[in-house]
């Protein structure tokens, strides 16, 4: 239970940071990339890219494999879908609240 919650938190905060979203976008386009090539394609330093990749890796959003002296990263689509789904669910919860506001306000208007 506690563990599942920790994972959910890590997933959400990992994708919520703009630089990390940009890196995810780049990785989706490229399929696979190293920290060095990602740094070339983004305004981030290689050091910053490595830091963000580590966060994404901990959240399970990317996976890496070693090829010779290089570490190549790619997106785990199932985990990315789960993160997108989480945000969609927050949107749905606001829709529920707006619906309740609508019913309340229309009922109050009808009886006033």
């Amino acid at each position: 239970m506690t563990r599942a919650r920790g994972e959910e938190e890590a997933l959400w905060s990992a994708v919520a940071e703009p630089s990390r979203r940009q890196l995810l976008d780049l990785l989706l386009v490229r399929g696979e990339a190293t920290a060095t090539t990602l740094a070339e394609d983004s305004p981030l330093t290689r050091q910053a890219v490595s830091k963000h990749l580590a966060v994404l890796d901990r959240a399970g959003l990317v996976e890496s494999r070693r090829e010779g002296r290089e570490v190549r990263y790619s997106v785990r689509p199932d985990r990315l879908d789960a993160a997108v789904q989480s945000m969609a669910e927050v949107a749905a919860s606001w829709d529920g609240r707006l619906q309740r506001i609508k019913h309340l306000a229309e009922a109050r208007h009808g009886t006033s």
Binding site: D25, V84, M87, D95, L98, I101, K102, A105, H109
Partner: peptide, 23 residues
């Protein structure tokens, strides 16, 4: 892909002051 803000809206058949107090 993923945005850092969520925007939702709805049209309510009631005047603004009633919606205001409800919100």
């Amino acid at each position: 892909m993923i945005r850092n803000e969520l925007k939702r809206e709805i049209v309510i058949e009631a005047p603004q002051d009633i919606v205001w107090s409800t919100v």
